[in-house]
Design a protein around this nucleic acid. Structure first.
Lengths: 180, 180
DNA sequence: ACCTGAACACCGTTCAAGT
DNA sequence: ACCTGAACACCGTTCAAGT
């Protein structure tokens, strides 16, 4: 018998659904994240989930947002430029599969497009902060963009970490001669 | 009333299915390419398709192979390095959505992985042929790899063609100073 | 406001049965 | 060898009905 419904209770329910969604997403990817599966795991009727999320894609996007936020917490504040960039690329690699799905769905789903843009901005802002002290201001934006684009292409290859790192460092050394 | 079944007839049937699959794929992407849809359009029972393709993913991969081959026919044999690369990037952009799905599925499906590798090799071989006369031999492989990776990252952004071209040219000019 | 159960229209895949 | 029809186990989404 459920207690009195308060504002807090709603948030708790949303939180439950979201947590389960993130878990399914990070283990089985987009395909495993189904409304039915979340409902079943939580002991709800499938239709109940729609009270909190209007569609599978909205739930997916919300779960992405949570997953990305969790993944990029606690970046190193110190260390060399290259080691700080490497941390970001390694974190990015950890969620790349999910990111690739978001990238695809962003063409048709406005909320997905919004999240993608916000994520991209966050990535560029962080990288800009890392590079600002070492790169001439007029080249900064261009270099940041190039590194981000190159990184996304590199992650798409799903190389083993060592090989990925090697290529990243090569590219960074070519793009950031002034750093060393 | 079907005629005698000959080897030719089988190839014709495969061809019909493949053609329909490519059409569905190029218009609606991976989501529209379903066994059921192909069967319905061809007036077959859904199970009949499985006689020719063992799974949806195999049909998808076969359709990709055909689509890619069709897309990259007739590259310009002459013209500047940049204009020839631009042709390839523009063609790549035309099938990028499908390519991205293949990239995803290659993790789990060996046939998808095979096709991806073959496609990648073909791309690298063509680019190598274009650049060979203008780049020192010891730098050739590295530059080819970097351009391909950068291009894949760039296409993932789904920029309008003009903006995509602008960034491509900027990157090429940075990577190929000897060409002009 | 919140949840259920049933329904609708799709899937991919398998398999016995027919020709 | 080739194809059908039915079945199974899934989907996403909607909606009337209940509390």
């Amino acid at each position: 018998m459920p207690r009195k419904r308060t504002e807090l209770d709603r948030d708790e329910k949303v939180e439950q659904i979201l947590e389960r969604a993130v878990e399914l997403l990070s283990h089985g990817g987009y395909e495993e994240l189904s409304i039915n599966r979340v409902a079943r795991d939580l002991g709800l009727a499938r239709a109940a989930v729609y009270w909190y999320f209007p569609s599978r894609d909205e739930l997916f996007t919300a779960a992405c947002a949570r997953l990305f936020a969790d993944t990029f917490t606690g970046p190193p504040a110190h260390g060399s430029v290259i080691s700080r960039i490497r941390w970001g690329v390694e974190r990015f690699a950890a969620i790349y599969d999910v990111y690739a799905v978001l990238l695809q769905r962003a063409s048709g789903e406005p909320t997905a497009a919004e999240l993608l843009q916000a994520f991209d901005q966050s990535v560029c802002r962080r990288l800009t902060a890392i590079l600002a002290p070492h790169v001439p201001a007029d080249q900064l934006d261009g270099i940041v963009e190039t590194i981000v684009v190159f990184t996304e292409g590199l992650l798409g290859r799903r190389l083993p970490p060592a090989e990925r790192d090697r290529r990243l460092i090569t590219a960074l050394n070519a793009l950031l001669p002034s750093t060393r």
